[in-house]
Amino acid sequence: MNDMRLIQRTVDMHETKIRASGVDVFYGDNHAIKDVSVYIEDKTVTAFIGPSGCGKSTFLRCLNRMNDTIPICRVTGKITLDDEDIYDPKVDPVQLRAKVGMVFQKPNPFPKSIYDNVAYGPRIHGLAGDKSELDEIVEKSLRRAALWGEVKDRLAEPGTGLSGGQQQRLCIARAVATAPEVLLMDEPCSALDPIATAQVEELIDELKQNYSVVIVTHSMQQAARVSQKTAFFHLGNLVEYGETGKIFTNPEDSRTESYITGRIG
């Protein structure tokens, strides 16, 4: 398997990381996601776009079973990660979420120090053997999130004291520190100013070298800038999925075109 992946990477053909087929999601009586099938490639940025309430965030939360924390939410259909069904009763959502990390819409650093925020994941998953390994993971993660230079002298200060953009990058560092295989981002820039947004977008572009990134976004420009694949959701349906360039220049479905040209939103 590993060898095969190496070969595929060189030819710029990405293996499918996540495959969803026939997924339906219900909130109580509300049918939020209707029969969605999609595959997400490794080492690729996939963007979910669509008007508000179209179900893109809900679908994203299915991918690491975050919907489990909502009692009235019910998911049917099949979602696999590396060909293993993530809704299999034998799967522990805790283990799944270690592999499929998530960054949220609003920066939500824990009320702890910057260091402890990043070290939280490695600690609970036992990724570091000793303190120096943990230090190393923290530093690497912060570097990867392009935050190291700004915070390296104040790792002991609370994470809540950072600016909005820094907080969001701290959350990304926190997610990266767990060494996930997939990173889900739920509108990661919606609470940020344009400069911070640019920094995060740059970061996403770099992250795709190691991870499969799925990003939900409201901004079509952002989707166009950072993603290779785009999925367009509308009223709980997956309307169209394909290469980002194609979706934005030559959509097949009229609804996609209406959305992109600003007629539905």
């Binding site: 283990q95 690497k140 190691n210």
Partner: peptide, 22 residues
């Protein structure tokens, strides 16, 4: 950036279906 690998990507791949000891 590219020369860095995240801490655990070197770790052996684990299946979701089997719970590890931890």
């Amino acid at each position: 950036m590219t020369d860095m690998t995240a801490g655990a990507s070197a770790a052996p791949k684990s299946s979701l279906l089997a719970q590890d000891e931890r």
